[in-house]
Design a binder for these strands. Structure first.
Lengths: 125, 125
DNA sequence: TCAACTGTATTAAGCCCTTCATACACGAAG
DNA sequence: CTTCGTGTATGAAGGGCTTAATACAGTTGA
């Protein structure tokens, strides 16, 4: 599981995004333990406080929960989990449509491009 | 011509993006004069220096040029202008594909979503 | 000529993010 | 009990980016 960070967006948000993708993909399931702050920091080569910031963000979004001092876990609320996938898809679709409309690009043409490029690309996990 | 800025991305980059979209759309044509730094700042309600930063960026990308102290103009290089549109489309397609693959979403399903949402949305100019 | 407009340059201020260094409370495991 | 690993909280420092304020040089046109 390789993670590459871009230098534009805040790292802690990219961490959140990473977890959302894993959830949407099914890599993380309901109630599953996630790495500790310090462990993930080690894995990603970032500061533990940055991870803490990301985890705090995810807690506020009900994506994870923490009981006492036990390792944090993915939420057991299936509704929330399902929503994550839905939101990511919705987000991708919205962004794409806005881009296309902002330059008056014909839809069939760009959709054709998508299908054309889709198979050529490797899926980077 | 209404422009809304998000608070996440740098304003000067959003200005550049705006011009690229206008070029791709054909609103701006080769050799056409563009608003002065101060005038655009007034229009967009931002600082003239922010506009200057955006214009400088566009000059480095050969999108516009400036002779002496005369108003800046869109480049006359049709090749560059054509590339702008191509790059924007490519960018949108790439971003979309990456989003879709990162969560293993089936392509036909999301493409269907695009076509479904495309007509419902108003085109915000 | 002079006023008003261009583009350009310099400097400073402020903000967000990241990192670092600590510290504390709690639970598990030896 | 002691040690280690959890989560959590705090404060400070630094960097990078963005914006702002201001000044200067040149052109245009009344």
């Amino acid at each position: 599981m390789n993670v590459k960070f871009n230098s534009r967006d805040p790292v802690y948000l990219q961490v959140v995004q990473h977890f959302k993708q894993q959830i949407a993909k099914g890599t993380y399931v309901a109630g599953q333990e996630i790495p500790s702050r310090r462990e993930l920091a080690q894995q990603f080569q970032i500061n533990p406080n940055t991870v803490q910031r990301a985890y705090k963000e995810m807690e506020e979004q009900q994506l994870i929960y923490t009981d006492g001092n036990l390792p944090s876990c993915i939420t057991k609320d299936e509704h929330v989990l399902h929503n994550v996938r839905h939101e990511l898809i919705q987000e991708a679709v919205q962004t794409f449509i806005q881009s296309v409309k902002s330059i008056n690009a014909p839809l069939p043409e760009v959709v054709a491009l998508i299908e054309q490029h889709y198979e050529e690309e490797d899926s980077h996990d």
